[in-house]
Computed example of a mutant assay.
Amino acid sequence: MKRALHVITGLGVGGAERQLRSLLRRLPLACDVVTLTNAGPVAAELRADGVAVTDLGMRGNRDVGALPRLVRLIRGGDYDLVHTHLYRACVYGRLAARLAGVRTVVATEHSLGAHRIEGRPLTPATRALYLAAERLGAATVAVSGTVAGRLRDWGVPANRIHVVPNGIEPATFAFDEEARAAVRARLGLPEGAVVVGGVGRLVPEKRFDVLLRAVAELPEHVWLVLAGAGPERAGLRRLTARLGMTGRVALVGEWPDMPGLLSAFDLFVSPSTEETFGLAVLEALAAGLPVLHVSCPAVDELPRQEAPGARRVEATVPDLARALRAELALGVRRLPVPEVVRRYDIDRAVAQLMTVYEEVRR
């Protein structure tokens, strides 16, 4: 096996997109990438890495004219394997690969929650289309045991499901004092500010409004910095104003230097109730940050002693506010990098994924 094509819905700054880049930097295959839409910042990063990226230019979920373009691209690339990522790409990519004559088709399920998939409700129609497309592939990779369980509950045969957890590059996120000072200066943070940070798409299911309300109950030297883009940005700005928090909340958008931003934080919070893995939590732990999370399979599926710096909390504003006060009472500190970070090293993820590829090829 020498050549693979990765098909992904978009290449904005998100967990699945960043994970794809990390994998491609280490996979021992020549890999190209097709993005169905939104050739965003991660597309530029992939090209800088030397990866060929094609933007298919889809205009929406029902732009079926994209299918023959994708079929032609797969046929012309002489690929041994097609690997799809995210819902729309998994539907179109699996079908296109079949039509192009490629039978070795793997899909990674990054975002299957209990009630939603990539922000869309799990309706009977969504589920039926998902299962129909799944049968066109050879294997489905789940990023956690939690996601694998949901796939089995949906009716995906257990022998087609392979758990390959996401991976990170731990050294990349090591705490950097100089980066901390530079980022805090760029954000205009005052001397002595304590920074609570969050990272993720600004969508309702991430529940950053709950985090904002909880931080509003803390002393005025505590700031909230949220990194990410999405439709909830305007609503979060309005809520910030209503709570009188305008002077101590920063919505920084798709921040290009995540290790530097994590160095600038003092405490990391993931308020989402429906994570499928928890990549941002792992990156925060790799940066030595104390972490509060509502849901994080990457941590929750392991013995507690592997992630002593991560604390699971309830999803309500009062509970989160109490947990924040308790953590901040311990003072600003950096923690040793826990065992859980080494468990999810990106090289291990690459080795596991290559094993799936070889099994499917056989």
Rank of each mutant, 00 (worst) to 15 (best):
L5V: 09
L5Y: 06
L5D: 13
H6V: 14
T9C: 06
E17Y: 12
L20S: 01
S22L: 15
S22A: 15
R26C: 06
R26P: 04
L29T: 08
A30R: 07
C31R: 01
V33G: 09
T37G: 02
V42A: 08
E45F: 09
L46S: 12
G50P: 09
T54E: 10
D55C: 07
R59S: 12
N61R: 13
N61T: 09
R62H: 10
A66N: 01
L70E: 07
G76Y: 01
H85R: 11
L86P: 02
L86G: 00
C90M: 07
Y92M: 13
L95I: 11
A97W: 02
T104S: 06
H110A: 07
G113K: 11
A125D: 13
A128K: 09
L129C: 10
R135Y: 12
A139H: 00
G145W: 01
G145Q: 10
T146V: 14
A148P: 03
G149K: 05
R152P: 00
W154S: 03
W154F: 15
V156K: 11
V163C: 11
P165F: 05
G167S: 12
A171V: 11
T172S: 10
E178T: 13
E178K: 08
R180G: 07
V183L: 06
V183W: 02
P190W: 12
V196I: 14
G197F: 04
G198T: 15
P204R: 15
F208H: 15
V210F: 02
V215M: 05
L218W: 03
L226W: 11
A227D: 06
G230I: 08
L239P: 06
R242V: 15
M245Y: 04
T246M: 03
T246R: 14
R248T: 03
V249I: 10
L251E: 08
V252S: 10
S263R: 02
S263N: 04
S263Y: 08
A264S: 02
A264V: 00
D266H: 04
L267R: 12
L267G: 08
P271Q: 11
S272H: 05
S272W: 06
T273K: 05
E274Q: 15
F277H: 01
A280L: 00
L282P: 08
L285V: 12
A286N: 14
L289H: 10
V291Q: 06
V294F: 15
L302W: 04
L302A: 08
P303L: 11
E306C: 08
P308V: 12
G309S: 15
R311N: 06
V317G: 05
V317M: 10
P318T: 13
D319L: 10
D319G: 15
L320F: 13
A323P: 04
L328M: 10
L328C: 11
A329I: 14
G331M: 05
V332M: 05
R333T: 02
P336F: 13
V337I: 06
V340G: 02
D345A: 13
L353M: 14
M354T: 00
M354A: 06
V356S: 00
E358A: 10
